[in-house]
Nucleic acid binder design. Structure first.
Lengths: 196, 196
DNA sequence: GCGATAAACGACCGATCGTGCTATTTTCTT
DNA sequence: AAGAAAATAGCACGATCGGTCGTTTATCGC
């Protein structure tokens, strides 16, 4: 059962790439099969349904996000350096080579916000985890004396998310070359306002 | 030719509602026809193609945005009050009763950012206009002495967009009841940092 | 009120959607 | 090398997609 798992992983890799561009609904079995180089039914046998495929793609995206963004940032020193690393790697994540359509979570969020179901629920769960991780990092920075004692950690997480979303918008839709500079400038202003 | 135009407008109204939830691609002729109460071919006759329908829906959205957000705000006094009105009405726009799926521009932006074509181009044009309007309002506030003389108006527009997008995310996907408070708090902080 | 015209309909096209079922091929075990 | 098991392919299904066509119905100018 080694071969099956290998092709399954290869399929999911391709699927993540495509989903970042077209979303989970636009990701059809036919196009994915063509891209992965096997028949539609051969591909379908790896998943019991399209919904399961979507869940697996979402899981793949999360795994990639953890190893690309979260894990390295958690190796940085506690406090502001770690918050900075989280933001910096999050920003780079948007342009990862295996995500030609940009952050899949942004695409999925807009696709699923009105479509109830297990895929949406799982995405919401992951988003909550991520926001909690951001808020925790901010609270640690308070403990370390880097940030103000009365800092609202959840508000900071909201503001960080705001910058990333705006960067995504300016960069991907408007193709604005200044998007990255704008995002960094907003981030520095946010840090300055948060410091002790 | 009065009757035709009336039903056409009714169709576009329905279509805008549906597009705010499902996007422009998810908006199918069949479902729209059922919703509007006519046959698929009868509906299709009003538009020459689905792309034309999409363009018309986009135009309808812009018309609504102008009359709901921009026009009333421009009647406010120049300077900070007008900037505040623009933001406040923009925030309310996200929950307009005729937009059950939230701001259609956010949905469309994510849907079209990787799909080239005339619909995307027109959306980008509208977005640029809107950003320019925001920056202009900010510059007027500088002229009026409300905002700092060295304020970066485009950066402010980027930050305003950020808040709205984050509000959209927290409110629609996460269903966070604190989203509105968070957005207003971020806006007030932005204003405070911009004042002279 | 009548004839012209605009508007809506129903049937149908080829393509593609997700998803079964059955063969066939490939891989793994022994 | 042979046989079991896993992986893949082939084919077909009902539904729906955007779109075309000829026909019928409703509206409008006179």
């Amino acid at each position: 059962m080694a071969k099956g798992e290998a092709t399954r992983d290869a399929i999911l890799e391709r699927a993540l790439s495509m989903a970042s561009q077209t979303g989970l609904e636009g990701l059809t079995l036919g196009s994915l099969a063509k891209e992965a180089g096997l028949s539609k039914s051969g591909l379908f046998a790896h998943f019991q349904s399209k919904e399961q495929l979507q869940l697996d793609v979402l899981g793949t995206a999360v795994a990639r996000f953890i190893e690309t963004v979260i894990a390295p940032a958690l190796r940085e020193p506690r406090g502001e350096p770690r918050v900075r690393a989280l933001f910096e790697r999050w920003l780079q994540w948007e342009d990862a080579p295996f995500l030609p359509g940009g952050c899949p979570f942004v695409a999925l969020a807009n696709e699923l916000d009105d479509r109830p179901g297990p895929v949406r629920e799982r995405l919401v769960g992951y988003q909550r985890d991520w926001l909690q991780a951001l808020a925790t990092a901010a609270r640690i920075a308070v403990d370390e004396g880097h940030f103000r004692a009365d800092l609202d950690a959840e508000q900071l997480a909201f503001n960080l998310y705001a910058i990333i979303l705006s960067y995504h918008h300016f960069s991907r839709l408007l193709r604005d070359p200044a998007a990255e500079t704008r995002a960094r400038r907003a981030f520095e202003a946010l840090l300055a306002a948060s410091r002790a």
